[in-house]
Amino acid sequence: MTTDSETSTDPQAGHDGSGRTSTPVRKLDGIAVAGIVLAIVVAMTVPADKLQGDVQRLMYVHVPSAWVAFLAFGVTALSSIAWLRTHKVTWDTTAAASAFVGVFFTGTALASGMIWGKPTWGVFWTWDARLVSTALLFVIYLGYLALRRATPDPIDRARRSAIMGIIAALQVAVVYKSVDWWVTLHQQSSRNSIDPALRLSLWVSVLAFTIVYIGLTSRRRALLEAEESLRLRGLRGSAVAGDAISKPNLEARSDG
């Protein structure tokens, strides 16, 4: 069994040590920006939906946001299992970084869904099973991040959050199946009946958002590792027991 101190973390990973981003990370950033530009261009130029009209174009940010949130929480759960098996700190930081990005994309999925809901349903919010379960997912993973902040010991933090990361993933399944399990205003999956041009636009957006997820998660992970390195350096320079233990007076003993 290894501990945090036994597992090395490199806060400079993906960087050249001068504060500048290294070539692979810059390449990923470039691909992400190109993907987003392409996704926006395709989303704005594909034909409008026959029933919903132009408002349906919001699906090209709403669906990818929800997909990336599911992916992020899946990665959190798998990384949590990996930490419980190996106790390697890299799995803990991956789980935390992915959960952080997942919460962000759950927020954008909720926001874009509400903006779509107003012109389509006539309301920003309704107590629909899909909407409520997604809001609950958002709150559960906010709780996951709060649990991490509230636990100062790295091993306790990793253990508690790993257990929560695995249990919380069950809510992802509830959100996904909510439109089948309950009678909902939110539509069921339409991936098999969607027009090919609209499907292509959706896939381009999903791909672009997935690349952005990888970039954001790797940055968040690097930040967590750098902050931990900074914290450990601060601990090394300070006394363990502070003023509670006074320096032994060895000179007095030699005099006697």
Partner: peptide
């Protein structure tokens, strides 16, 4: 105008994404 909703949604989502980055 439906485009107002589309632009509002895209601005919020992509704005938040680039803000977080």
């Amino acid at each position: 105008n439906p485009w107002s909703w589309v632009i509002a949604g895209y601005t919020i989502v992509y704005g938040a994404m680039f803000g977080l980055t």
